[in-house]
Design a protein around this nucleic acid. Structure first.
Lengths: 329, 329
DNA sequence: TTGAAAGCGGTACCAC
DNA sequence: GTGGTACCGCTTTCAA
């Protein structure tokens, strides 16, 4: 900028005015400056500018794994909200490790990102102190953290599972089982609780049959065999996520079990499986958008108390939820 | 930092030394400084530091759409390489628009990112001048650009299609058709050319049957009907990407056509479709990793001529490639 | 071992 | 309209 100023015989301040389209520069001066800028190939150094202004116009997204479709959809939505507002998005994976998450967040705070959206690795809010000290706005997604209330965007796990159970019951199922993910995950526990509560609430017979992860293809098969081997055979299964849906589909095919099935999370070819798979759809894009909007509201000065938003799920009815008769034994 | 210095009765330079673990500070001085840092909750401002050092320890990835599984896998791989090297990753979507891509890249250059990996929206290298002027290293992915040679990481489109055709021929197919994507895309044209070339190279009878996009479900059905209606009915189809594979599967089911099929790009439940779908697998993670490694090599001073790397594809054989008999008419 | 001062590349503030 | 200068928060350089 100093070079441009010298070359155009004006002060740096005037160059700055031209670059930033500030008023109060004579058109011919501005034109002369612009010509020099063009000739020298000058570009404003945003780092310097932002340092002076104290804002980086950058937000960050911290997730477990960017390649996971759920997170990548969240990422796309957050990036979009950022771009609309002339912000950049830094994405970082914590690979499910709280310590790595903490390190990542500390690095982001050191960079003075304006705000962070994070899908926390656990409920410990391990970087709370750092964030508190730096007063960097943060929005949690998908899972809440303990301690001070924070802005949080969750999915309606309870409602999602309930809609699945009700759909199956409406189609005549009375013996429904649940395959959940590792109970180390908050969402997995939520869905399990929702299943048990709905099971009891609807007065279904017997004790709710539940199998929590981590699962292996072998363990899924074994469990399915057990559940379908006997007088009170299970007639329908609800899964706790995508991966488990896949495992159950495979096991079911292997064992030739005509079980009904409702998966958690939609997947691209759900309509092409035979029968097409009915699923509980969480809307990751909507969740990401909501989280970003909440974050930007804070950046714009919203000082209201931290709020938790629960996003609705939607049951996408295909065909796998209808009664398929008693399993062959 | 000035605050810390004042509080610890040392100069800012000494604080700087402590923060950066530079030698030449007496242990007790360092300890005193550390105590103050702790008490004041001081964090080094990386923006200021990086400005002084002239490097941002940040790279960027520009793609069409982060939610697309191909790109999100690339993104995860690039982020991983960045994280390993203590860099941050800024991700940006250009939504397939060359002008938006240009704007995004200009913003990144203004931020002085150390380097950029980009999946270009078209072949025009629209931001070439900007990048050239700023001498920001860039690595192109998936598609080449015209003009000055640049570091580029491509997938072996020709080999991928050839392996598909050969697989079908090995299973007795002689009448094979190709559903490509919009020829506006370089990869779509590559794959079409590869199909035609292989078709002729293997001496298959007749003119290669090819339908290029953009496709709609209706157009795909119509084309399939035409291709299977007559004496020289097509017995196998190769698709140009994921989306088209899906469209063909749907149309095929609708029309009850027992066509063999090989899809381009693997997808999660390919093994669960009936019959399980054989696909040409490009390895997006490997491509992203390679591109990032190439970029970091440049950042470390590699001055060798621009190179183009072609990553191999892999045919994942399931069952949809075998002969399924003459279509019902 | 420690510190003073210049400077990175801009912007804020105020004078002219 | 335009310019001078302090300053953002840190590192670099060099002197003490």
């Amino acid at each position: 900028m100093a070079d441009v100023a010298a070359e155009a015989h004006v002060s740096v301040k005037t160059v700055s005015r031209v670059v930033n389209h500030e008023p109060g520069v004579r058109p011919d001066t501005a034109e002369r400056v612009r010509a020099v800028i063009e000739r020298l190939g000058f570009r404003r150094h945003d780092g310097a500018r932002l340092m002076r202004q104290g804002r980086t116009y950058t937000i960050a997204l911290v997730v477990e794994d960017l390649a996971n479709p759920f997170y990548s959809q969240v990422g796309a939505a957050v990036e979009r909200e950022a771009r609309i507002r002339q912000h950049q998005l830094i994405t970082a994976s914590a690979e499910g490790s709280p310590s790595r998450e903490r390190a990542v967040i500390e690095a982001l705070v050191s960079r003075r990102v304006d705000g962070i959206v994070v899908v926390p690795a656990d409920e410990s809010a391990s970087s709370d102190a750092v964030l508190e000290a730096s007063s960097t706005p943060i929005v949690y997604m998908d899972r809440p953290v303990r301690g001070t209330p924070r802005d949080t965007v969750l999915s309606d796990n309870h409602g999602g599972v309930r809609s699945a159970v009700e759909h199956l019951v409406a189609h005549g199922h009375r013996s429904i089982a649940f395959f959940g993910d590792d109970p180390a995950f908050w969402t997995a526990r939520q869905r399990r609780e929702a299943f048990v509560a709905t099971h009891q609430g609807l007065g279904l017979p017997g004790t709710p049959r539940v199998s929590m992860g981590p699962h292996t293809p072998a363990s899924v098969q074994e469990t399915l065999r057990r559940w379908t081997d006997g007088l009170e055979s299970v007639t329908a299964v609800i899964t706790g996520n995508n991966r488990i849906t896949l495992a159950v589909l495979l096991a079911q095919r292997e064992l030739r079990l005509p079980l009904s099935l409702i998966g958690y999370d939609d997947f691209e070819l759900a309509a092409l499986i035979d029968p097409p798979v009915t699923v509980v759809h969480q809307d990751p894009a909507a969740m990401g958008q909501k989280a970003a909007q909440q974050l930007f509201a804070r950046l714009l000065g919203d000082e209201s108390p931290a709020q938790t938003v629960v996003m609705p799920t939607r049951l996408i009815v295909r065909a796998s939820g209808v009664r398929r008769g008693v399993p062959t034994r």
